[in-house]
C-alpha cells in the first residue's frame, strides 16, 4: 500500500449509476471497497463500459451489478455464472465480470462454480468472502469455518470451510488470486490481471460484514476487521509462514496462459461442423 504520494487520479463516478447512491450496504461493509477496487481496475485497463457485462446472483455482494454503469444482469441466487456463460458464448468479445458472495458462489452456486472453472470459460469471478450470509441475516455459509458463530450456529459451527483458492485451482480455473479489503491497491492489481487473463479467473477478496459475522464473532468494527486482515494474511511464500503456518497467503496462485479457453474450443467445433457448407 502507498505510504506516501499516490499520483494516480481516478474518476470512478463515470462508471456509477449515481442515482442509486448512497448505496444500501451497511456502514463499513467491505463490499463497497471491492466495488471501488473493481471500478479503478476497469478505469486503469481503459475498458469500454459498453463491452462489459456484469451478471450477479442474490446477496449483499450481488447488489454490485445494480450500481455499475455497464450492461448488467441481476439474476438468481447461485446462478450468475450460468447466465454469464450464456452471454459469453453468444458474444465472446464481451468482458464478463461476476461479483459473488461466498454463499452465492460456494453454497447454492457451488456446482456452477466448479463447472465454470472446469470449462475454463473466459469469465472473471470475484468472490466477496465475508464468511456469512449477509443479506438474509447472518446464517453460516460454507466459508464460515469451524468454531465460528452465526445466527444459525449460536454455539458455533461444526462445519469445516472450503479453501476457495484450492477449490478453484483443483476445479481448473486458470487464474486464481486472493486479497483483502485492507489491501485495496493489491485488489486493483489482481482484478486487472484477472480481467485481462483469458480463461476462468477467480479473485477471492476477504470482505468484512461488521453487521453479522463481525458482531456474532466479536471482531470489532469495520476498521478492526480490516486490521485483522492485515495481521492474519501474508504475501505468498512469506518467511513469516515458517513461524506461523496459520497465516493466510495473498497474491496470485495460478496464472496459466496455456490452458485452452472454452469459447475458442467451441469456435473450433463450429468451424469443423460447418466445413464444406458455408
Amino acid at each position: 500500500m502507498p505510504k506516501t504520494k499516490y499520483d494516480k487520479e481516478y474518476n470512478v463516478k463515470q462508471y456509477l449509476r449515481e442515482r442509486f447512491f448512497p448505496h444500501i450496504w451497511c456502514p463499513g461493509c467491505g463490499h463497497g471497497i471491492v466495488l471501488g477496487s473493481l471500478l479503478r481496475a476497469v478505469e486503469e485497463l481503459g475498458l469500454d463500459p459498453t463491452e462489459i457485462v456484469m451478471t450477479s446472483g442474490i446477496g449483499c455482494s450481488a447488489r454490485i451489478s445494480g450500481y455499475v454503469n455497464f450492461h448488467s444482469l441481476h439474476t438468481i441466487h447461485g446462478r450468475a455464472l450460468a447466465f454469464a456463460t450464456g452471454v459469453k458464448l453468444s458474444t465472446p468479445k464481451l468482458n464478463l465480470i461476476v461479483p459473488m458472495g461466498d454463499g452465492d458462489a460456494l453454497a447454492i452456486g457451488g456446482n456452477h462454480f466448479i463447472h465454470a472453472a472446469r470449462r475454463n470459460i473466459d469469465i472473471t469471478a470475484i468472490v466477496m468472502n465475508n464468511r456469512i450470509y449477509g443479506m438474509t441475516g447472518g446464517q453460516f455459509s460454507p466459508l464460515t469455518g469451524y468454531g465460528q458463530k452465526a445466527t444459525t450456529a449460536p454455539y458455533s459451527t461444526i462445519d469445516n470451510e472450503f479453501d476457495v483458492v484450492k477449490l478453484a485451482t483443483a476445479a481448473g480455473a486458470s487464474f486464481v488470486a486472493r486479497s483483502t479489503t485492507f489491501h485495496a491497491t493489491e485488489c486493483i492489481d489482481l482484478i486487472k490481471k484477472a480481467i485481462s487473463h483469458k480463461g476462468f479467473s477467480v479473485v477471492e477478496i476477504f470482505s468484512q460484514c461488521p453487521t453479522h459475522y463481525g458482531r456474532k464473532n466479536k471482531k470489532g468494527d469495520a476498521s478492526n476487521m480490516m486490521e485483522l486482515y492485515k495481521k492474519t494474511t501474508v504475501p505468498i511464500g512469506s518467511k513469516k509462514l515458517e513461524q506461523d503456518p496459520s497465516l493466510i497467503e495473498r497474491g496470485i496462485f495460478v496464472d496459466n496462459k496455456e490452458a485452452p479457453e472454452y469459447c475458442d474450443e467451441y469456435e473450433k467445433i463450429i468451424q469443423t461442423a460447418m466445413k464444406g457448407r458455408a
Binding site: P2, T4, K5, Y6
Partner: peptide, 16 residues
C-alpha cells in the same frame, strides 16, 4: 501526504 489510502478504502466512494 496524499497517499489516498482514505479514498481507496472508503466503502462508500465518498472521499476523493
Amino acid at each position: 501526504i496524499y497517499c489516498k489510502l482514505c479514498e481507496l478504502r472508503c466503502p462508500d466512494l465518498a472521499i476523493e
